[in-house]
Amino acid sequence: MISVKHVFKTFGSGAAATTALDDVSLEVARGEIFGVIGQSGAGKSTLIRVINLLERPSSGTVTVDGEELTRLSPDQLRLARRKIGMVFQHFNLLAGRTAQGNVELGLEIVGVSGAERRRRSLEILDLVGLADKAGAYPAELSGGQKQRVGIARALAGNPKILLSDEATSALDPETTRSILDLVKTINVQLGLTVLLITHEMDVVKRVCDSAAMLENGRILEQGSIVSLLSTPGSRLVHELFPLGEIAPHPGNTVIEITFSGGSADRPVIAQLARTYGLDVSILGAAVETIGGNQAGRTRLELPGTPLANAAPIADLRGQGLLVEIVGDGAVVEGSRA
């Protein structure tokens, strides 16, 4: 649905030039929620603005729904943008228009007239759960309500894609969850493809089907959450399930097990202890529900050297678990059986 290929974006020129995007390629499938995570300054804002060409890439191509946006004329681009709704961190609502007026702005631009505009704007406000606030001005709305108006406005032109620029970053945790649930609902009900950028791992955990990690303008890794979970040494997975510092006892083996799907339900550790008579200690664990499935990581300490524990580790891998042997904080070895 969205295909970004070898995009570079440089601001300024000469010695003062800074590279915001450094050979970024991204594939977002139809109907999925794709999260780009990165810290501030990583280039997230630039990346999302490149998708609808609010920011024109210095080089590279952006293709949305089969249309190569980077080749369009300004007028064609304006029409293409109507297929791409966008919501913003600071809502960007017109202070002089009511909630309904703000939604109608989207329809006015597309050229929907009079009665149809009113009907449709109320319908969308109802969809985002704000039917009773149609006549309220943004100053009279809470942050969450403003973002609902923002989402309604983005949906006005019947887009196929929703871009979300840190849409929940200015909201409290509870409101964040309700907005994310709304995004998920829209994604399912309207079949909308969603690309969101965020610096909050919780956002990725809660709604994303796929994710990419952006750092210093480069994509470090990307893929579906499921496939990332089975990728050894995935930074994204490590940040999704933080286990803290490693403090192994000398002579012992520390392993990290990443599990997802069916393997999450099996009593893996108990089995391990029973079968091999091992005194397994749990150093840390993080378990989350991602996309309706349990997934997580556990850090275990096994007595003896890695060599001595080869059999139980092989057994774990045989069960389809991702097992990484960790030494002094670094991943020494990691592979899937």
Binding site: N52, R81, F88, L94, I109, A154, A156
Partner: peptide, 20 residues
Amino acid sequence: GLIEAAESLGATRWQIVAKV
């Protein structure tokens, strides 16, 4: 940000002047 929002909706420059 308001100009950006209008641009993302596909507004023309004159629409941005007149409506935003």
